[in-house]
Nucleic acid binder design. Structure first.
Lengths: 126, 126
DNA sequence: CTTGACCTTGTCACCGGCGTCAAGCTTTAC
DNA sequence: GTAAAGCTTGACGCCGGTGACAAGGTCAAG
C-alpha cells in the first residue's frame, strides 16, 4: 500500500509517516515511480508507535519497541530494551508526579504568604 | 544601575532581562549613551518574576503580579488578578497530577499486557 | 485532454525562554 | 594608550511533532 492508505489505517497523517521515516522508525520500499510502498507489518509498527505516544512516549522512546517487533516478537514490549524503557518511563512519571505535588505546595505556600486568608475557602478545585 | 548589575542581583542573565523587557514585563530608562538604567523597584520585580517561574509560572502568568507591585502593593500576589492566577495555576497543577496518575496506570497496564510478569517485582521506584 | 486525487522533496512556522554569536559602541582599569 | 569588560541591536538555534504551503510528478476516470 502507499502512504495515504497506511496513514488512514494507522490514524496518522502522511506527513507524520514521512517524519517517522526521517527519524528512522519506519522504512519504505519505493515503487518505480518513487512512491513509498508499505505492507501489513508497517501498519502494526505505526499502530504500536501511536499507542506509545498516546501515553506520553517520545519517538525515541518508541524505537526499541519497533526494533522488537521487527525482530519477530509478537509484542513490541517484550524485549529487554523495551522493558527498560517502560521502567524508565514509569520512574519518570513518578518523578513528575512528585515534582508537581511539591510544586503545588510551594504555590499554595506562596499564595498563603502573599494573600493570607485567600486560601481558606476553597482547595483543589477537584 | 545597569543591566549587568540588575542581572547579578536578581540572579538572571542580561539576555533574560532584555527578553522580559521585550515581553513587556519590565521597563527601562535609558542613559545618555543608550544603556538601560534600573533602580531598586526593578530588582524587586525581577525577583518576583523569578520566584514565580521557579514554581512553574510562565512570563504571562507573572504579568499581573508585576502590575500589582507597580501599583504600589507590597506583595505582588495580593491583587485580585494575581489571586485569580494563583487559583488557575493550582487547578492546572491538580489537573496535570490527575493526568499523570491516569497516564501512569495506562503505561503500567500496557507494560503488564506486553510483558506479563515483568511488573510483579518492583513498583514506583520511590 | 483535462481534472482531480495522490504522490514527491523541501521549507517555514509553532511554542517558551532564553543561549549564543555578530558587529560595533562605551566605559573602566592599568 | 590600550585592552578588557560591558553595553547595544539583530538574528539564528533549540526541542518535538507535526501543519501548512510551494512547486512539481503520476495516474485513473470521464
Amino acid at each position: 500500500m502507499r502512504i495515504g492508505e497506511l496513514a488512514r489505517r494507522a490514524g496518522v497523517s502522511p506527513r507524520a509517516l514521512r517524519y517517522y521515516e526521517q527519524r528512522g522508525l519506519i522504512r519504505s520500499r519505493r515503487s518505480a515511480n518513487g512512491y513509498r510502498e508499505y505492507d501489513e507489518s508497517d501498519v502494526r509498527i505505526v499502530t504500536e508507535i501511536r499507542e506509545l505516544m498516546s501515553v506520553g512516549f517520545t519517538l525515541d522512546d518508541a524505537r526499541p519497541f519497533v526494533d522488537c517487533l521487527r525482530s519477530g516478537h509478537s509484542s513490541g514490549g517484550s524485549c529487554p530494551e523495551s522493558v527498560a524503557v517502560y521502567r524508565r518511563k514509569l520512574a519518570e512519571i513518578d518523578r513528575q508526579i512528585r515534582d508537581l505535588l511539591a510544586r503545588r505546595s510551594e504555590v499554595a505556600a506562596q499564595f498563603a504568604d502573599a494573600c493570607p486568608g485567600c486560601l481558606l475557602t476553597r482547595r483543589g478545585e477537584s
